[in-house]
Design a protein around this nucleic acid. Structure first.
Lengths: 151, 151
DNA sequence: CGCTTACGGTTTTAATTTGCAACCACGAGA
DNA sequence: TCTCGTGGTTGCAAATTAAAACCGTAAGCG
């Protein structure tokens, strides 16, 4: 979006994603895409953002391989925007963000929605980072490390 | 940051967090805070962003209760910025974002870092949304639902 | 056919935000 | 006293965002 060059020569695993979805609207567009919205007009109505901004954001998401355009499912002369594999990979990010929002951005007692397991209608478990052996890892238990390539 | 009023009267559990951390730099500041950075200068050196921008971001994160200022640990006349409980709650978000970045933003073979379990040095498990009964939930298996208040 | 509407944008223009650079304030040392 | 390091603030130019008007195509209708 903007020529944002990190001070280190190559962007890290957190900064690169932010280039793709690090603005206010993009993640909301992706969320709506998970909710089944596909058309320009659907996104615009749902989000209430200016059409030029939406056009730029969609273009950006497509450029980053998060959405792709497919021929319109209803025969109209336009196209649909659908999530790619990469885009669907954002599901845990969105879930984590939502859980954090639900936990910290609502007054106790303020009504809000929660993520539930569709099958049983029960709230989902809180997302937790787990080690291979199943231990729950907190911020102090994990670190980034250069991984020996194996392929 | 900006008076962004969603078309629906009250912001949802995804949009509210984005008001707090939905800009390019804020999450990177939080990540650095998880890495133990505490001082204005440390953040600035690490991220390489303009001082005025950093000042505004830090102020915003403090205003949102994600960081708080504490008297400097080294006796200098300034203060440290440390994560609050709410801020530490962002750990899964950051982990999810990092895993997504690692999975989709690097060429195969391009060297990059991965999150590892500090204790055993092994890569962590991929974050997964789980139902109460332990089933892994994909985008189609979960939905948002108004939760009956219970307290 | 001629008129109107819906859809999916693009263009124009103004307001807001960003980022660089210069400046300021304060305390510690020399 | 002079200078330096730290932690900002201020001014200003450039980039981004947002609102609104406009455009082109296709469909619906009388």
């Amino acid at each position: 979006m903007v020529k944002r060059i990190s001070h280190s020569e190559s962007r890290c695993g957190v900064a690169r994603p932010l280039d793709a979805i690090g603005d206010w609207w993009s993640l909301l567009i992706v969320r709506d895409a998970f909710d089944g919205l596909r058309r320009f007009g659907e996104f615009q109505k749902s989000l209430g953002l200016a059409k030029n901004i939406l056009a730029v954001r969609l273009k950006n998401l497509v450029a980053h391989g998060i959405l792709e355009t497919v021929p319109a499912s209803d025969g109209s002369p336009y196209h649909d925007y659908v999530l790619t594999e990469k885009g669907r990979g954002l599901f845990p990010v969105l879930a984590a963000l939502r859980q954090w929002g639900e936990a910290f951005f609502f007054e106790p007692g303020e009504k809000h929605v929660v993520l539930v397991d569709k099958k049983h209608g029960q709230p989902v478990r809180k997302l937790e980072l787990l080690a291979q052996d199943g231990r729950v890892l907190g911020p102090e238990d994990a670190e980034v490390r250069r991984q020996p390539l194996r392929h």
